[in-house]
Amino acid sequence: MEKATRSERIILFLILAFIGVFMVFPMIWMFLSSLKTTEEVLGSTMTFLPSDPQWSNFSGALELAPFLRYIWNSFSTATVIVLAQLFLSSLLAYALTQMEFRGRNVLFMIILATYMLPAATTYVPSYIIISRMGLMDSLAGVVVSNIVDVFSLFLLRQGFLKVPGELIEAARADGASEWRILWRIVVPTSKNTLINAALISFIGHFNNYLWPSLITNSEENFLISVGLNRFFNSQGAFGQTFPLIMAATVISILPLIIVYFLLQKYFIGAISSSEGIKG
């Protein structure tokens, strides 16, 4: 690419800065609103900063509904789902990339084809299966129905394809079994791909709403997205508790923000691979 001139760069910077502010503004607004009083939020004069930060909104929100419980439910199910997905996808991706068998490519095509199915069409059959398994209204149901994921399989397969064949052959010559080659050679050398897949999947499942809302009924099994939504709906006088709702929302996205700061450097890879660009 040609080097931009100084003025071009300034213009580019301004545009990007504007877009950036535009994108994070709702988040900032949410955070600021969570510290305001109801009057401030609903009053006719709009204020930007809360005149007197209401930190008590947070404890207030936590009293109205078991948000910490919801967050824990989301966090733990997302974690278990991610681990299970990575485990299963690694096994399958290894077979699809490193083992030779008849129909290997056909198998992969069939698996990919299932990715084209709209998720909504799977809800009814999945619902029936989960209920037959006796896993309705349980976190186990949420986990079990999500442990197989075509997208993470696809990502891992792409990653495993990049592992030099000689490494695997060297390990075979060293006497290693396929199981060992997968976990000791292929997975560690594809570490970035695995982290990318894990991040995408974790965020997706932490925020997942529709399917969990269909199979969970009791409050103790709500994921944060489901719990937050019930909370909105149960607070009849919506306006009255707006700052509390904002506080609850801030609490609910906190874990993701922490994950983001811890694993910042992997996010760009995750985002570009989730958009199908070379990761």
Partner: peptide, 10 residues
């Protein structure tokens, strides 16, 4: 011993 060493990078 492989043509391109094939050392385990990690």
């Amino acid at each position: 011993v492989f043509q391109n060493y094939a050392l385990y990078p990690h």
